[in-house]
């Protein structure tokens, strides 16, 4: 557990939870990122302004951190473009079919004690752990 960073994880997690509560108390909306983004892509959705503003706020953070001298490192992703594309497609299609992602189900949903969200979180955790086990320890070696 050499990489365990409990203090920054707790501070960051508390901020994520605080943001979800503020968004609900102020605007009545759920801070589920897949739903917010999908609503921005959907031509039939009419309430795009708050979605755009929320995501713009998120994307501004690494920019501001960069100005303050704590620029964010580029994420390390799989070397294969095919794997990146398949992963993105699965995340996009799966979060829509399953009505949510890590934020919407894992934090907002479990925070409301929703049985749907608890079930969804267990399922995506299990398939994610299984996928990493297979790619790193079975085929990846």
């Amino acid at each position: 557990m050499a990489n365990f960073t409990p203090v920054s994880a707790a501070i960051g997690g508390a901020l994520i939870g605080l943001s979800a509560v503020l968004l609900m108390v102020l605007t009545g909306r759920i801070a589920g990122i897949s739903g917010i983004f999908a609503g921005l892509l959907n031509v039939r959705s009419e309430d795009k302004a708050w979605r755009f503003a929320f995501l713009a706020g998120m994307m501004l953070v690494p920019v501001i951190a960069g100005w303050l001298g704590h620029g964010m490192a580029s994420p390390s992703l799989p070397a294969s473009w095919t794997v990146i594309a398949v992963a993105g497609l699965l995340v996009g299609f799966g979060t829509r079919l399953g009505s949510g992602c890590t934020s919407g189900h894992g934090i907002c949903g479990i925070g409301r004690l929703s049985m749907r969200s608890i079930a969804a979180t267990v399922v995506f955790m299990v398939t994610a752990v299984a996928t990493v086990a297979i790619t790193r320890h079975v085929v990846g070696g």
């Binding site: 699965l90 995340v91 994610a128």
Partner: peptide, 9 residues
């Protein structure tokens, strides 16, 4: 499906 994509990338 989401979990598989999350685990891949």
């Amino acid at each position: 499906l989401f979990g598989v994509g999350w685990g891949l990338a």
